[in-house]
C-alpha cells in the first residue's frame, strides 16, 4: 500500500512522512502570502492539522501537494482578513514621489499600508502575481479558480492601489 493510501486510512506514520516531505513547500507558499515567518509557521501547523482531519476527503490518486496548497491558501486568506491594519488610511496628499532616501522609506510605508488595506483576495492575487511573480496557473490552482479570475483580481488590485496612492499624492514611477 502506498503512502497516500496509508495516509487516507489514518496511519500517523504515513502522515509524518508526508509532513516531512511537504512542510517546507507549504511554509514557502504561505510565507510568500503573509510575509511573516512566525505567522507562516503557525499557519503551516494549522494547515497540516486540517489536512489530517480531512484525510477521509482525500482521494489517494489525487495530488497531495495541490490539495495541501489549496488548504494553505484558504487559511492564508483568513489570516489576511484578520490581520488587516486597524488604522485608517492617510488621506492627506504626501506630495510627489520623494528623492530623499528617508522620505522614500516613508513612501514605501504608505504603499505597504495601502496594499494591506486591499480586500484579502485581491491582496493575495497581487502578492503572488506581482511581488512573488508566481505563474497565474499556479495561483489559480491554489485558489480553486480560473486564470481569468486571478488576472481580473490582479487588475482590480492594481487599479484600487493606484487610486489610493494617487489620493496620497504618490505616483509610482
Amino acid at each position: 500500500m502506498d503512502l497516500l493510501q496509508r495516509f487516507a486510512l489514518g496511519e500517523i506514520d504515513a502522515f509524518e512522512a508526508l509532513t516531512q516531505q511537504f512542510q517546507g513547500e507549504i511554509y514557502a507558499w504561505i510565507v510568500r502570502i503573509v510575509r511573516d515567518s512566525g505567522a507562516a509557521e503557525d499557519l503551516t501547523v494549522e494547515t497540516l492539522w486540517r489536512i489530517y482531519r480531512a484525510r477521509h476527503q482525500f482521494r489517494p490518486d489525487g495530488n497531495f501537494g495541490a490539495w495541501a496548497r489549496r488548504i494553505a491558501t484558504n487559511l492564508a486568506i483568513d489570516h489576511l482578513r484578520r490581520a488587516r491594519p486597524e488604522e485608517a488610511l492617510m488621506t492627506e496628499p504626501a506630495g510627489e514621489l520623494p528623492r530623499d532616501p528617508l522620505l522614500q522609506q516613508e513612501t514605501r510605508e504608505h504603499i505597504q499600508r495601502a496594499f494591506r488595506h486591499l480586500p484579502a483576495k485581491l491582496q493575495l492575487a497581487a502578492t503572488l502575481a506581482l511581488i512573488e511573480e508566481q505563474p497565474y496557473e499556479e495561483i489559480a490552482d491554489a485558489l480553486g479558480t480560473s486564470v481569468g479570475t486571478v488576472k481580473s483580481r490582479v487588475f482590480r488590485a492594481v487599479r484600487v492601489l493606484r487610486k489610493r496612492l494617487n489620493r496620497l499624492g504618490i505616483k509610482p514611477e
Binding site: 514605501r108 496594499f115 502578492t127 506581482l130 511581488i131 487588475f155 492594481v158 493606484r162 514611477e173
Partner: peptide, 12 residues
Amino acid sequence: GRKVRDALKQSF
C-alpha cells in the same frame, strides 16, 4: 500596471 508592480516590489 508596470509602475505599480515596480513600486510594490520595491516596497516589499
